[in-house]
Write a protein that binds this DNA or RNA. Structure first.
Lengths: 210, 210, 210, 210
DNA sequence: TATGAATGAGGATTCATTCAT
DNA sequence: AATGAATGAATCCTCATTCAT
């Protein structure tokens, strides 16, 4: 079980976690090599299987680990900000900060989303579903929806905005591939998109560009 | 070569193609088992390698096969329709029709897009690049962009619409997972989204829900 | 059986024989590909197995074929020449002539001698033994052994000469590898070796260099 | 690498080495079956590939192994012996002793010399070239060539003697095939050949049969 | 008689997992 | 608790041989 793994020194634990995240992120579940992990982590073959009974258990542990990191995003957000677009920008920035801190975790998660291995797909999908639902729930907390035009279906409008944000994020990710160089440019471009959306979906008095 | 495969009876060819599409869609390139394919297709171990010299060649053949199916979409579209949203609906419907005819091909393509295997990634990326460029080119052919508001950046606006369409399609796919039962409902829902977008992005005189 | 093969047109027979000789010479028994043979010969897969029940039978047929070619060597020699060294030179020259006519047969034979495949080794060894014994028997026919010194064991002396000839031939083969460019030089060098041997093993009155 | 293999118990290492030598000697590089080796050695399928990454590496290891055995021959010879024939006899005897100790190694080497597999041919040829050059160099070390007649080309004379020795060795090997029973007889026969050669090639004062 | 598609045993190699130390 | 050698099922692929046409 994990009790044995938990009792390890923090440094060793991190070494193992990072080695495993990296390997799974690079190669996907099935192709990831336990040999690669133990080599990178500098531990013995048997040890890995002492800590985690098998590959799947290790993968699921990591899935749980990154979930906690994602939770960090939400715990850091300023839930008093009531403007929908400002909240989105804020969360985007925090995501980015955390990415710089735990890059492997993000690469792992990115890979997990498109993971095809039947052995773990179910768990990943459940996690994603959960993440999305609680994410939306928390993401919409304290938002002042009264700024939106009342002649448009609010649910649909927020969907359009979310899809736009998602599409934009995807586009940026494809463009940079490693989040190293992105900063102000990306934010500026998002600002422009935000303004278009605001002008369309907000009541006229809230359309100011600030 | 494929000459031997081409000479097979249509029924057998389809059995093999579908078995392979299914296996690759489920497991990805590397983990897909040729054993699984021949078992599902009901052919002998060696036969598959008579038809295709190796796994990669088989995969590339399938990639070509689905490309042709995608081309079918465009060849069936009415390129005289100048309204952006009507064109999108039309292509969406055709896509859907073809999906019902070749469901595995779509799952295969979906998987291919996020395929990580280095052995075939180059080919996939080339194909995608080609698909996107000719796709956009053809997709925007004859569109009357003068209907759009001139005070908004047209490029960004079309991006928002495309992301919305993509996000909506994804949502529907996740919802139904097998496209068996969806029809009018989906179209109605898209119509509603379309109307919101039209009201926001078209000049006022074109916002009629026609 | 071979009756079916025998009834083939000469041209086709030769095409098949040469293709097979070439393939076996290049790749050895086990690694030789029946596919390679039928492709080179321009016949159908099944045909080869109509003519010869299996790979081994084909190989054995070729072994027999080249044996007949070797017999040609002896049938062409001038058996009235009684000088041991002149006879050797003569046979060497004839060998060389025939090599130029049937190069594949020689390459095949060369490869056969060092063939390791257990499936055919027995037959090859029997053939070689037979070739050597009848070869020696015929090679020594009509030779005037009275020219040799009587104080040396004749059997041993002829052995030494044969080993020298063999060693020399081997050396030349390694040097040229394809018998294309060898001619006078080789003969001259052999002449020199012959003279040394003559001076040692012939009675003094026969040591003249011609 | 070989570190894992090196750490094995001597008995197991020898079992594997001998099994592999035997298989490669019998079947040649390409046709040699790793299955055959592991079966003969009594180890698991995967183990062989733990010790040696692949077939080629195993083969190259064996090539190195037999080279060391050959070096043993030279390290045991008495390099103060200046008589050419005595030196040859001596090395011949040592070779024979070692053959009795490592029969498979000799069969392996014999096969290697005529190995056709392109995958290992380069390495074999390099080894042979090295073996021959250092072999000749060491073999002729301290030899008193002044014993030879000066009216004969020394280079050619030594060649004749070497070819004779080689031919004789080959003859003996073919005769006994397992070297179990040969001893004094062979030496006696070689002595007789030596005497003939000495009487022909040495200056008269050194022809004593001692 | 000639064909070539179909077969399947066998090839080398990989890798998660076990277990004696 | 930690180790790493041993395992063997599963991987893709080859090829001599068969057999229906």
């Amino acid at each position: 079980m994990n009790s044995q793994f938990d009792n390890l020194k923090t440094e060793k634990k991190e070494r193992i976690i990072n080695a495993a995240l990296k390997e799974f992120a690079q190669s996907g579940y099935e192709k990831a090599s336990t040999n690669g992990i133990i080599k990178e982590a500098g531990i013995a073959k048997g040890s890995l299987f002492n800590y985690f009974n098998n590959k799947k258990e290790l993968y699921l542990f990591l899935l749980d680990y990154v979930t906690k990191i994602i939770d960090e995003i939400y715990s850091k957000a300023d839930w008093n900000e009531t403007d929908f677009f400002k909240r989105m920008s804020q969360i985007g920035c925090i995501k980015f900060e955390i990415y710089k801190k735990y890059p492997q975790a993000f690469d792992f998660m990115k890979r997990a989303v498109s993971e095809g291995a039947t052995e773990v797909r179910t768990e990943i999908e459940a996690l994603i579903k959960n993440l999305i639902s609680t994410g939306l729930e928390r993401g919409y907390q304290n938002i002042d929806f009264s700024k939106f035009r009342t002649d448009l279906d609010l649910e649909k409008v927020t969907k359009i905005i979310n899809w736009t944000a998602l599409g934009f994020a995807e586009e940026q990710r494809d463009k940079v591939n490693s989040f190293q160089d992105v900063t102000a440019d990306v934010l500026d471009e998002w600002e422009e998109l935000s303004n278009i959306l605001k002008r369309c979906f907000y009541k006229q008095e809230y359309c100011g560009d600030d």
